[in-house]
Design a protein around this nucleic acid. Structure first.
Length: 506
RNA sequence: GGUCCCAUCGUCUAGUGGCCUAGGACGCUGGCCUCUCAAGCCGGUAACAGGGGUUCAAAUCCCCUUGGGACCGCCA
């Protein structure tokens, strides 16, 4: 297992990078890293209509975000046109390729006719034996020929696939496909062979959908005199209706950017994707990047398609949120607070890193994404409380007012404003008032946060600090008395810009 | 329509002829814990698509059927 593996990811830069790209990239990357090999990036940009430099940039940025660093490239096929031309020339000279003068319209008509008769949608090879005179005439008509590959008309092409095993194709099923367009640009099946040969790719690891193309490529390798790489066709990632993941028809999100924006961690996404079609054993679900490199193997890649289960991704993301580095998570939270418009860039920048880390600690096991984290933490970091009318009605009744006042006063006297000191103090106070923590916790929580769920009451108080806690208690007590709690508090406060998260903590 | 691939709980999967009255995980669900919600812990639900073979023995091997998917472009 110590050969110099060379693998590649060869996306076409024709749109936003998607899950499928990450999947193929990850498996190739893992294979390269595991074997101390080389991971090459190549852009298949011969579809000049749809390819764009921006898309290439977006793909590279996404790969970087995922941490799938490449060792070579990016190569661009459009910068290698001369290479394809030379190879095509060789094929032509060897009698393995020929010019075809059929127009797009003619081909389209033939295809339609064939399909209507329920027959083969293959090119009829009509240009294969044109006489020199015919060719002259067609050229004189101004036709610009394409170059077609003479595919063997009989025999069998065998694909030795590392995932699918040995797959046989009857050569009669294939037609003389186009290798060079009329303007000289190569088509996919041609360019991919020359590039993989030139780049000395040892293992072509790619999606399942290419298995049917492989015989075409194998014949090309042979005609060109190149040695074959090993092939490994990965099962595809499917949507809930078991179709290939597609931006257009699938319900689930396919764009990687939307996962990034949605508050997913790259390590969670990678861990999740790795387990789509691959398993190490019956025990382990969580794999760090290093463990994946160590434990991944093509032998253990399954053959059947795998449905993308967002619930499981969410679970994994929460796992990495709970166990990730607090410092890093804190900074990500800062970013998402702005992104989710919880606060301004300036406000976010003013937050001490330590405060953010505390928030992460308080919420990490209660949220699944950074977006949820930012939105949940809003009431701790800003004064904007969203009182749920239902909860207000249920918990903030006039009879809790004395309790709130007592708390505000009593807590002011506490020497240390920490959860450890708060708990016994509050419990004692409640007991003295003839109440209990069980009875009073929820009203207090709503008073302080506006909602009925969240971190422990004492953690919340400690985070808010003595002053802010007392302030919220008093203010809400007043609002209850005057019956003003039917509208959002933020309006009644006249839009205070004060930040409780700033200084006054214990 | 043709060719090719695939087929274990709803989902991801373990299983490579006996260890399987099929294991784990997500989800769902019951309980514990508890100031809420989570997290955590304990328990439950749920699958070998069907039919033929081969074999002492089949989820595992073979065949057929069915079902699903991909590809069949001067897209990749």
């Amino acid at each position: 297992m110590s050969y110099r593996a060379r693998v590649r990811i060869a996306p076409s830069p024709t749109g936003a990078p998607h899950i499928g790209l990450a999947r193929t990239a990850l498996f190739n990357w893992l294979f390269a890293r595991q074997h101390g090999g080389t991971f090459v990036l190549r852009f298949e940009d011969t579809d000049t209509e749809r390819s764009s430099r921006q898309s290439a940039q977006a793909i590279m940025e996404t790969l970087r975000w995922l941490g799938l660093d490449w060792d070579e490239g990016p190569y661009y096929q459009m910068e290698r046109l001369e290479r394809y031309r030379q190879a095509a020339q060789r094929l032509l000279a060897a009698g393995r390729a020929y010019h075809c003068y059929c127009t797009v319209e003619e081909l389209e008509a033939k295809r339609r006719r064939a399909l209507a008769q329920g027959g083969q949608v293959r090119y009829d090879r009509s240009c294969r034996r044109l006489s020199p005179d015919d060719e002259k005439r067609l050229i004189a008509e101004g036709r610009r020929p394409v170059l077609r590959f003479k595919f063997p008309e009989s025999g069998v092409t065998v694909v030795e696939d590392l995932v699918k095993g040995q797959v046989e194709f009857d050569n009669a099923e294939f037609d003389d496909f186009i290798i060079l367009r009329s303007d000289g640009r190569p088509t996919y099946n041609f360019a991919v062979v020359i590039d993989d040969a030139d780049l000395k790719i040892t293992h072509v690891i790619r999606g399942d959908e290419h298995l049917n193309n492989t015989p075409k490529q194998i014949q090309l390798y042979r005609a060109l005199g190149y040695g074959l790489p090993q092939f490994a066709h990965l099962p595809m990632v499917l949507d809930q209706s078991r179709h290939k993941l597609s931006k257009r028809r699938s319900q689930i999100e396919t764009s990687l950017k939307s996962y990034r924006d949605g508050g997913f961690l790259p390590e969670a996404l990678l861990n999740f994707i790795a387990r789509l079609g691959w398993a190490y054993d019956d025990k382990q679900e969580i794999f760090s990047r290093e463990e994946l490199i160590e434990k991944f193997s093509l032998e253990r890649v399954g053959a059947s398609g795998a449905v993308f289960d967002e619930e499981k991704l969410l679970w994994l993301n929460q796992h990495y949120l709970m166990h990730g580095d607090p410092g890093r998570l804190g900074e990500l939270l800062r970013e998402f607070l702005v992104r989710q418009e919880i606060m301004s860039t300036q406000e976010a920048q003013a937050l001490p890193a330590e405060r953010l880390q505390t928030v992460v600690g308080l919420f990490k096991e209660r949220v699944h994404t950074l977006v949820e984290l930012a939105e949940s933490a809003g009431y701790l970091l800003t004064e904007r409380l969203q009182f749920d009318p239902q909860e207000v009605k249920k918990f903030l009744t006039p009879d809790v007012v004395p309790l709130l006042r007592a708390l505000a006063t009593e807590l002011g006297e506490l020497s240390e404003f920490t959860p450890e000191r708060l708990e016994p103090a509050v419990r004692a106070l409640l007991a003295a008032q003839g109440s209990s923590l069980k009875a009073a916790a929820q009203p207090c929580r709503v008073v302080l946060t506006g909602v009925t769920r969240g971190p422990g009451l004492f953690e919340i108080m400690a985070f808010l600090g003595r002053e802010e806690t007392a302030k919220r208690l008093e203010r809400t007590a007043r609002l209850i008395e005057t019956g003003q709690l039917n509208r959002p508090l933020v309006e009644q406060n006249g839009g205070s810009r004060e930040r409780p998260g700033g200084a006054g903590s214990a």
